[in-house]
Amino acid sequence: MNFVKHANIDKAKWDALVEISTCPSLYLLSWYLDATCHWDAIVWGDYEAVIPLPTKRFLFFKKLYQPIFVQKSGLCCKTNKQPTLLLKEFFNSNVPRQFSSFRMHFSHELNIPKEILPKKHKIETKKNYSLDLSQDYPSLQRQFNQNRKRNLKKARELGWKTEETYNIEHAIKMYKTHQAKKQGKLTKDVFIAIESIFKECMQRKMGKLVLCKNNTGDELSYGFFVEYHKRIYYLFGAMNDEGRKHSAISLIFNDVIRNHAGGDFILDFEGGNLEGIGNYFASFNSVVEEYPCVHYP
């Protein structure tokens, strides 16, 4: 197990590992991490297993944190490795103790025994919602709850339409105008990150920005989705007051579901810890994926 500074990370080997790992994840790709944070890494052998270490410094303090737009990171390893043994080695090393605060989210596919953690570190369970799209669209749509069906019917009656767009600047502006204040203080780094992620994903033909308009052509809502390893990540959304009133984002989700129905896809709603948001995602008949968060304090 070796600590590797960011400048010395072999990005080609890193991404090759993610591709063949036990749980390939968009969040673990080197270019995605580069778009969201400064990070160093723990590397085992010749990139047989890795852990990204997103860090921030404040005066004399260094903290390990979970970057925005990176829901889960943690351990990534080859299928012939034993994750529990790797994590035990990591948590028993001096690395976690170098940080004044520590927060790391792991894949929902990993089980982390409490006994391998340092004494002061705690583990808690977070929620994410996902929807298996392997059924045909009529079957999936029938399982939406009644409120979601009413929203979609109302949107169609109002003549609302969706279309693909590349105008991430308009989406960010809508978010800043109608949602940012409700989310608390957001730094400009948040919006720089989403623009950077958008650019990288579109260059790789992995992303899609969907816009919902009303019958007069006014913009109501945006949803940004990225597909990786048959998983469709909902990374960013925005809506104005009219779009919120009749849940325009539901029409966007419905289109994504319809366009991928019957395939070997998972729609990852990328959230759900807040009860109201979780209930909304559940209205599409999505299921909860619980994933571990290790933190100190």
Rank of each mutant, 00 (worst) to 15 (best):
N273G: 11
S283Y: 04
L53G: 06
I51N: 09
S73G: 09
K13R: 15
K161G: 04
Y47R: 02
N167W: 02
L28D: 00
L158P: 00
H295T: 08
I232A: 00
E164P: 01
L186N: 13
I168T: 03
S73C: 13
L64G: 00
N215Y: 03
L29M: 08
L17K: 05
Q82K: 12
K114E: 15
Q146H: 14
R204C: 03
M104F: 03
T79A: 15
N128S: 11
G262I: 07
Q146R: 14
D264T: 06
N128A: 05
R97E: 06
D15R: 04
L110R: 03
K213Q: 11
L59F: 11
T187Y: 04
K56M: 13
K126F: 10
I9W: 01
K119H: 11
E270R: 01
G272W: 03
E195K: 13
L59S: 07
K119N: 10
K88S: 13
L87I: 10
G45K: 13
L158C: 09
N279A: 12
L53I: 14
L186S: 13
E164K: 08
I68R: 10
K56W: 15
G276I: 13
Y222W: 03
Q203M: 11
F60N: 11
Y228L: 03
K161L: 14
A12Q: 13
K56Q: 14
E270D: 11
E89Y: 05
F269C: 02
K120C: 12
E195T: 15
A180C: 05
P54Q: 01
F106A: 03
F90S: 04
E275I: 09
E163T: 09
